[in-house]
Simulated scan of single mutants.
Amino acid sequence: MVREDGKRNFVLREENGTESSVFSGSMPRQAALKAARRLDPVDSEDKAREQATEIRLREKGTDKVHIFDAWAWVDDAPDDKPDWMEGDITKGNVSKQGIEHLEE
Protein backbone atom coordinates (compact mmCIF):
# COMPACT_ATOMS: atom_id res chain seq x y z
CA MET A 1 0.00 0.00 0.00
CA VAL A 2 1.46 3.33 -1.07
CA ARG A 3 1.20 6.15 1.46
CA GLU A 4 0.21 9.68 0.56
CA ASP A 5 3.89 10.71 0.39
CA GLY A 6 4.69 7.91 -2.09
CA LYS A 7 6.46 5.66 0.41
CA ARG A 8 5.57 2.07 1.17
CA ASN A 9 5.85 0.16 4.45
CA PHE A 10 7.77 -3.11 4.72
CA VAL A 11 7.71 -5.46 7.71
CA LEU A 12 10.79 -7.46 8.72
CA ARG A 13 9.78 -11.13 8.62
CA GLU A 14 11.56 -13.72 10.77
CA GLU A 15 12.22 -17.32 9.70
CA ASN A 16 9.32 -18.59 11.82
CA GLY A 17 6.87 -16.21 10.14
CA THR A 18 6.61 -13.62 12.90
CA GLU A 19 6.85 -10.01 11.83
CA SER A 20 8.55 -7.29 13.86
CA SER A 21 10.00 -3.94 12.80
CA VAL A 22 8.49 -1.75 10.10
CA PHE A 23 10.72 0.10 7.63
CA SER A 24 9.49 2.58 5.05
CA GLY A 25 10.87 3.55 1.67
CA SER A 26 9.79 4.37 -1.83
CA MET A 27 11.48 1.17 -3.03
CA PRO A 28 12.08 -2.17 -1.25
CA ARG A 29 15.86 -1.65 -1.39
CA GLN A 30 15.58 1.61 0.55
CA ALA A 31 13.75 -0.16 3.38
CA ALA A 32 16.23 -3.07 3.23
CA LEU A 33 19.18 -0.68 3.66
CA LYS A 34 17.55 0.69 6.81
CA ALA A 35 17.07 -2.86 8.12
CA ALA A 36 20.69 -3.79 7.26
CA ARG A 37 22.05 -1.03 9.49
CA ARG A 38 20.45 -2.78 12.49
CA LEU A 39 22.54 -5.93 11.98
CA ASP A 40 25.57 -6.54 14.18
CA PRO A 41 28.37 -4.74 12.33
CA VAL A 42 31.87 -6.13 11.75
CA ASP A 43 35.03 -4.08 11.33
CA SER A 44 35.31 -4.00 7.51
CA GLU A 45 33.03 -4.18 4.47
CA ASP A 46 34.89 -7.18 3.01
CA LYS A 47 34.36 -9.25 6.16
CA ALA A 48 30.76 -8.08 6.36
CA ARG A 49 29.99 -9.17 2.79
CA GLU A 50 31.33 -12.66 3.56
CA GLN A 51 28.97 -12.88 6.56
CA ALA A 52 25.84 -11.66 4.75
CA THR A 53 22.53 -12.33 6.50
CA GLU A 54 19.29 -13.04 4.68
CA ILE A 55 16.52 -10.58 5.49
CA ARG A 56 12.93 -10.82 4.31
CA LEU A 57 10.67 -7.79 4.01
CA ARG A 58 6.95 -8.20 3.40
CA GLU A 59 5.29 -5.27 1.72
CA LYS A 60 2.29 -4.29 3.86
CA GLY A 61 -1.03 -4.83 2.13
CA THR A 62 0.39 -7.42 -0.29
CA ASP A 63 1.60 -11.03 -0.26
CA LYS A 64 5.04 -10.08 -1.67
CA VAL A 65 8.14 -10.88 0.37
CA HIS A 66 11.34 -9.24 -0.87
CA ILE A 67 14.45 -11.28 -0.05
CA PHE A 68 17.84 -9.63 0.40
CA ASP A 69 21.33 -10.61 1.52
CA ALA A 70 22.36 -7.86 3.95
CA TRP A 71 25.56 -6.92 5.74
CA ALA A 72 26.79 -4.11 8.00
CA TRP A 73 30.17 -2.77 9.01
CA VAL A 74 31.68 0.00 11.14
CA ASP A 75 33.34 2.90 9.35
CA ASP A 76 34.82 6.26 10.33
CA ALA A 77 32.40 9.18 10.40
CA PRO A 78 33.00 11.80 7.68
CA ASP A 79 35.24 14.77 8.45
CA ASP A 80 32.34 17.22 8.12
CA LYS A 81 30.20 15.37 10.69
CA PRO A 82 28.03 17.36 13.11
CA ASP A 83 29.26 17.85 16.68
CA TRP A 84 26.77 15.38 18.17
CA MET A 85 27.89 12.49 15.90
CA GLU A 86 30.27 9.91 17.32
CA GLY A 87 33.55 8.92 15.69
CA ASP A 88 32.30 5.66 14.15
CA ILE A 89 29.14 4.97 12.15
CA THR A 90 27.42 1.81 10.96
CA LYS A 91 27.04 1.38 7.23
CA GLY A 92 24.99 -1.30 5.52
CA ASN A 93 24.46 -2.74 2.07
CA VAL A 94 22.09 -5.24 0.48
CA SER A 95 21.83 -7.46 -2.56
CA LYS A 96 18.38 -8.51 -3.77
CA GLN A 97 17.89 -12.27 -4.13
CA GLY A 98 14.28 -12.32 -5.31
CA ILE A 99 10.61 -12.10 -4.44
CA GLU A 100 8.32 -14.75 -2.96
CA HIS A 101 4.56 -14.69 -2.68
CA LEU A 102 2.93 -15.87 0.54
CA GLU A 103 0.23 -18.51 0.34
CA GLU A 104 -1.61 -17.71 3.58
Rank of each mutant, 00 (worst) to 15 (best):
I99F: 06
K81W: 12
D80L: 11
D43E: 15
P28V: 05
R8G: 10
R58H: 03
K96Y: 15
M1Y: 08
E19Y: 00
K64N: 10
E100P: 06
E19A: 06
A31Y: 01
G87L: 15
E4Q: 07
D43K: 12
M85I: 03
E4Y: 09
T53F: 03
D5S: 05
K34P: 01
D63G: 08
A35D: 02
F10L: 06
A31G: 06
T90S: 02
G17H: 05
K81L: 10
M1K: 09
K96R: 15
K47E: 15
V94W: 02
L12W: 02
V74K: 12
M27K: 14
F68R: 03
K81M: 15
R13D: 08
K34L: 04
Q51T: 15
D80M: 11
E100V: 13
M27S: 13
R58P: 05
I99V: 10
L39Y: 04
E50S: 13
D80N: 13
A32I: 06
R13E: 12
K91S: 08
T18F: 04
A52R: 10
H101R: 12
F23K: 02
P82D: 07
V42I: 08
E103C: 08
P41S: 00
V22P: 06
E59P: 03
P78N: 07
N93R: 12
A52Y: 10
S24L: 00
K64D: 12
S95W: 15
E15W: 10
S44L: 10
Q51W: 06
N93T: 13
E15K: 11
D63V: 13
Q51Y: 09
P82R: 02
F10A: 03
T90E: 00
K60Q: 13
A48N: 04
M85D: 02
S21T: 15
E103K: 09
E103Q: 12
V94T: 09
D79C: 14
A48C: 07
R49D: 11
T18N: 07
M1N: 11
L12V: 03
A72Q: 00
K81F: 08
E14G: 09
E45D: 11
V11P: 00
K64E: 09
I67L: 14
Q30I: 14
R37I: 01
D5G: 04
S26D: 07
N16K: 05
V74T: 13
A70N: 06
E104F: 11
L57P: 00
N9K: 13
L57A: 00
L57D: 01
E45N: 06
I89F: 04
I55E: 00
R56M: 14
L33R: 05
M85L: 08
K64F: 07
G61Q: 07
E59W: 01
R58S: 06
V65M: 12
I89E: 08
M85C: 03
R3V: 08
W73H: 02
H66T: 12
A77I: 09
H101F: 12
K91Q: 08
V42P: 02
E103D: 14
E19H: 02
V11F: 01
A70Y: 02
T62I: 13
I89M: 08
R29I: 13
R56L: 10
M27V: 14
T53S: 07
P28I: 03
A72D: 01
R13W: 06
I89L: 04
R58E: 05
L39F: 04
S44M: 11
